[in-house]
Design a protein around this nucleic acid. Structure first.
Length: 220
DNA sequence: AAGACTTACAACCGCCATCGC
DNA sequence: AGCGATGGCGGTTGTAAGTCT
């Protein structure tokens, strides 16, 4: 009998005490690949590991197959063209990685997401940091992210941006037009005078701020 | 040489949507 | 219609490898 989770009353997808975790071995890869090539996934990933003789969670098998073992998966570096496409699509649709990955043959949502988080996002932030100090940059239109998942409340992730509590910032962060142009003329961040350090720190760490910065870079 | 720090990416977690009973 | 099982997804974590001091 499966033991229900304490926190949300949800049954785990497998008996975690009796499945292997961590990196996949060559033997496991071989067994999974052979089974799927001979039988297909059968439309039931939960039952697959038992049939294939693998001591892994079904979800783990699915992920391993889709992200690594599946034929025609590209494992090399991303090209400039792929980077540009990812940035362009991120601007249009946000972090819908599976949709973005579908436009990049051989890449999976996990690849794209990792690439964004480790390289592209950082590049975006660095570009923006330099723009802050060098020249005036008019703001682009606000992001139009049509992301159904964002419309629902999620309790355990950071996807729902909480309103900034500091009273001085909400206009800045929630305005439809974002930060207005005059603010960016303050090359030395003079517009920040009058705000306390904690408020500024909160702003810089806020997801909303990151989204604004990201959208600006992408339009540059 | 070795410990600290950073980077890259595989893997896991938990949530929501969908499907079949 | 209601419920449980499963698939799919995005966010987050763990860790090996590389780099720095």
């Amino acid at each position: 009998m499966l033991v229900r989770g304490v926190e949300d009353g949800r049954a785990p997808c497998c008996d975690k005490a009796n499945v292997k975790r961590g990196p996949w071995s060559l033997e496991e890869d071989t067994a999974l690949k052979r089974y799927i090539e001979e039988n297909g996934s059968g439309g039931n990933w939960i039952a697959l590991p038992k049939k294939a003789g693998i001591r892994r969670c079904g979800k783990s098998c699915r992920l391993r197959w889709l992200n690594y073992l599946r034929p025609n998966i590209k494992h090399g570096c991303f090209t400039e063209e792929e980077d540009d496409l990812i940035c362009s699509l991120y601007k249009k649709i946000g972090s819908r990685w599976s949709a973005i990955a579908s436009k990049l043959p051989g890449r999976t949502d996990n690849h794209v997401k990792n690439h964004w988080n480790t390289k592209l996002k950082k590049r975006v932030m660095e570009e923006q940091a330099s723009l802050f100090n060098t020249s005036y940059k008019p703001l682009p239109p606000p992001l139009e992210i049509s992301q159904p998942r964002l419309q629902t409340v999620r309790s355990s992730t950071s996807i729902n941006c909480q309103p900034i509590s500091t009273p001085s910032w909400p206009e800045l962060l929630s305005s439809d037009e974002g930060l207005n142009a005059s603010m960016w003329n303050e090359a030395d961040f003079g517009f920040l005078s009058g705000f306390d350090f904690e408020s500024i720190t909160d702003l810089l760490n806020s997801p909303r701020f990151e989204a604004v910065i990201t959208s600006m870079w992408i339009d540059a």
